[in-house]
Design a protein around this nucleic acid. Structure first.
Ligand code: FES
Ligand code: FES
Lengths: 145, 145
DNA sequence: ATAATAAAAGACATTTTTATCTTTTATTAT
DNA sequence: ATAATAAAAGATAAAAATGTCTTTTATTAT
C-alpha cells in the first residue's frame, strides 16, 4: 500500500473527477465515476455516501441525480478529504507508531519525520479540490491509466 | 494507520533497540526486545526472522543467543528496513494509486507528491541504523511511551 | 551425551480493509 | 398516482494485516 489507504485514493480520485465533470452545474452518477477512476463501483459508493454525509460532496437521488460539488466544496482543501476518510492521523501520528508524537520524549525519527509530515500536510492543505479541473479538461493530468 | 504499516513500525523500533543493546558485542532476546519497544512478542519474532533471513540483522540460537547487528548492519540506511518490510512502493508508487507514477500522464498530485516522497526517501536513506545509539543511551530519544 | 536455551517454523485466530450483491428510499418525469 | 431513476442502506464475503500459541531446530554449557 502507498502513503494513503486504497479507500482514500479512491476518494481523492473520485472527488477530482466529480469536480471536473460537474463544474457546469450537472451531476454525475456512481457508475460513470467508478469507470473513469477505475474503482470498484459499490465500494466507491460507500465512500461517497460518507463524504456526502460529511458535506464534502453533494448528492441528489432520482432521475438526473448523482454527485456534484458546490462552489464551497470546490474551494475546500484536499486535506479535508484525507481527514474525512483516513482520519487526521497521518498529519499527527508518530512515524514509528509511538502513542503520541511530541518533542518531549521524541522517537529517533521525530525531528526529520516532522519535516516530511508537515510538508505533506502543507501540500494537501494548499491544494483545493477544484484546482485541477482545467488540467483534467486538457488531459495534462489523469485519474486513470 | 500512519505512513508505515504496524509491521514496519515494529521493525524499525526493534532494529534501533537491537543496535543500541548490542553495540558492545552482546545479543538480545526477542522477549526483551518486545517488552522494550512495546510490541507483540510472537508477531515481532516473525518480523525479525524475516529481517534476519535478508541479512539486515543477525541472530544466533541457543544459550547466550539472540539478535544483534554487525558493523556492516549498523552502517546500512534505515531505508533498507522499510524496503525489506513494506517493499519499496512507498518510495515509488503514485500517491493516488494509479498503476504507475511518471511525469508522462501524471496524476494531479504528481508534482507536489514527488517532492514529499523524495524527501521521505532521502531522509530514510541518509539515516543509518546505528546512528541513534548514543541518543538512546542518553534517553534523548525513546522507543516506547 | 544430555539438558537448557533461544530462535525458527508452523498452525491457527482475530481484526481491518477491501469488495460484491441486494433491498430500500428519495426524487423526477410522465 | 405511476413508473423510472439513482443514491442510501444493509447484508455478506474475500483478502490482507495483525496477533497468538505450539512444536521444531540449532547452539551452548555441563
Ligand atoms: S515522536 Fe515519533 S515522529 Fe514524533
Ligand atoms: S502519477 Fe501520481 S504521484 Fe506520480
Amino acid at each position: 500500500m502507498g502513503i494513503f489507504s486504497k479507500t482514500c485514493e479512491y476518494a481523492v480520485r473520485a472527488v477530482f473527477f466529480i469536480a471536473q465533470q460537474t463544474a457546469d452545474g450537472s451531476r454525475v452518477g456512481i457508475k460513470e465515476i467508478a469507470v473513469n477512476i477505475d474503482s470498484p463501483e459499490h465500494f466507491l459508493a460507500k465512500i461517497l455516501q460518507d463524504l456526502s454525509k460529511r458535506g464534502i460532496i453533494q448528492s441528489v437521488k432520482g432521475p438526473n441525480g448523482g454527485f456534484y460539488l458546490d462552489a464551497q466544496n470546490l474551494s475546500r482543501p484536499l486535506s479535508d478529504v484525507i481527514e474525512a476518510v483516513d482520519g487526521g492521523g497521518i498529519f499527527r501520528d508518530c512515524g514509528l507508531g509511538l502513542k503520541e508524537c511530541s518533542s518531549k520524549n521524541p522517537c529517533p525519527l521525530h525531528h526529520d519525520f516532522l519535516d516530511v509530515r508537515n510538508r505533506l500536510q502543507n501540500m494537501l492543505e494548499s491544494i483545493t479540490i477544484g484546482q485541477f479541473n482545467e488540467d483534467l479538461n486538457l488531459g495534462i493530468v489523469v485519474l486513470k491509466k
